[in-house]
Design a protein around this nucleic acid. Sequence first.
DNA 1: GCTAAATGTTGAT
DNA 2: TCAACCTTTAGCT
Length: 266
Amino acid sequence: MPEGHTTHRLARDLRSTFGGGTGVGVSSPQGRFAAAAGELDGQPLERTDAHGKHLFLGFPARRWVHVHLGLYGKFPIEPAPAPPPRGALRLRLENATHYADLRGPIACELIGPAEKAVIHARLGADPLRRDAHPELAWMRLSRSRVAVGALLMDQSVVAGIGNVFRAEVLFRHRLSPFRPGHQVTLEEWEAVWVDLRALLRAGVRTKRIVTTLPEHRRRRSGTASPEDSFYVYRRTGEPCRVCGTPVQTMTMVGRNLFWCPTCQAT
DNA sequence: GCTAAATGTTGAT
DNA sequence: TCAACCTTTAGCT
C-alpha cells in the first residue's frame, strides 16, 4: 500500500486516534523494538509528521518513532479490544478505543531531533507538504541526463512517489519514461507537479490510488473498480485505454516500469 | 503446502 | 547491477 499518500494518511489518523494528552500503550510483541517501546509505554503521542514515505510519531522529550513501511509494511488502525498479538508484530499502539499494529516495516526506530533532521535533509520535495519546494525538484530534473522515469523514483528529487505514481503520472502527461530529465520542459514539469499533488491528495482522502479519468473506464462511475484504476501499472500486454496498443513493461531502476509505447512515444 | 510477487531502500560488487 | 531484508497474500499444486 505504501506510497506517500499512505504515510500522510497514517500520520493524520494516528494523531486523531492516539494523539492528545492521554498516555498510549506501546509494545513490541515481536521484540525487535522492545527496548524503545518500554521507554515510550504510557507516554502521550504529542504530534505526528510525514515526509514522503517516512512517518514520524512524536513523543515527549523530542523523541520520535521513525517508521518506514518499505515494500510491504502495514499499520492498520482497528477498534478495541486488541486481540492477543500474533505473527511478527513489530509495534502495537493502543488506547481505550483503538489499537494499531505495525508489521513488516523496513524501519521502526527511536530517534532524536538531529536524526530526524538528517532524514528530512536527504528527502526532496513532497507534493503533500506545505513547505515543499518544487523548484528544487525542477533544478535537479532540468540538469540531469537521467531518464525522467528514474528521476521520479529518486526520493531526493520528489519524495513520496513510488512505482504506481511513476508509471501513472507519466502516462497521464504522455511523457516517455525514457526522456532525459533535461529534455522535460518547465511547463511539462509544472503540470506533472500539480497533478502529483492532486493524485496524492485524492489518495490520502480515499486511501487508494486511482489515476484514470471516468471516460477511460469501462464503468464510468465516479468510483473506479480496481481493474479500472490504472492506465498502465501492472497492465502488461493489455490494450492501452486510450489507443489500444499493448502496454509494455521492462525493468527501470530495479522496478517494473509500465508504459504505452504509442501514447508515450516521446 | 509451496512459490512468487508486492505501492521500497540499502549496501556491496 | 544485484542481493538482502522486512511480511503477507495470491495463485498455484
